[in-house]
């Protein structure tokens, strides 16, 4: 019997902000939920993130920013993914992101934004429901 492939997630910190408590907590929770997580570390450019996502053949990219630079970095990641023809990766985001910014981020293809106070279970559920299994 063929074993189901684990969901692969790239946890990424674009921009210069070093607040990685949240992304590390989420990464740990996803691993405990049976997913495979690759964490990029902080200070990644959108180019580095997209390359890592392709190289690691991930199903999900989780972006986290707390500095307010999401308005540049999130759309940039989406733009580069499109350029590279990557369309089946679920991209989600988190951090300090004002509610009024969310529609614009979703428009450019971010599937969901998780703000402060989100339970990791909610994120796990969302990923499980939105990733098309590639067995």
């Amino acid at each position: 019997m063929e074993q189901k492939r684990k969901i692969r997630v790239l946890a990424a910190k674009p921009g210069l902000d070093g607040h990685d408590r949240g992304i590390k907590v989420v990464a740990t929770a996803l691993m405990e939920a049976g997913m495979e997580v690759i964490y990029t570390g902080i200070r990644q450019t959108p180019q580095q993130i997209v390359e890592a996502a392709i190289q690691e053949d991930v199903d999900v990219i989780g972006l986290s920013i707390l500095s307010g630079a999401h308005d540049y970095h999130f759309p940039k990641v989406m733009e580069l993914l499109k350029e590279k023809g990557v369309e089946d990766v679920v991209v989600i985001g988190g951090g300090i992101i004002p509610e009024e910014d969310i529609p614009k981020l979703k428009e450019c293809g971010i599937k969901e934004i998780f703000g402060p106070g989100t339970s990791t279970r909610e994120i796990i559920r969302f990923i499980e429901e939105n990733v098309k299994r590639r067995d």
Binding site: G15, L16, T45, A69
Partner: peptide, 22 residues
Amino acid sequence: DLPTQIGFDSDHEMAIGEVGKV
């Protein structure tokens, strides 16, 4: 702001999106 804290001028490529933010 973060570019200042990391020793980049505002015109540096890594500073895009971060100038004056935090």
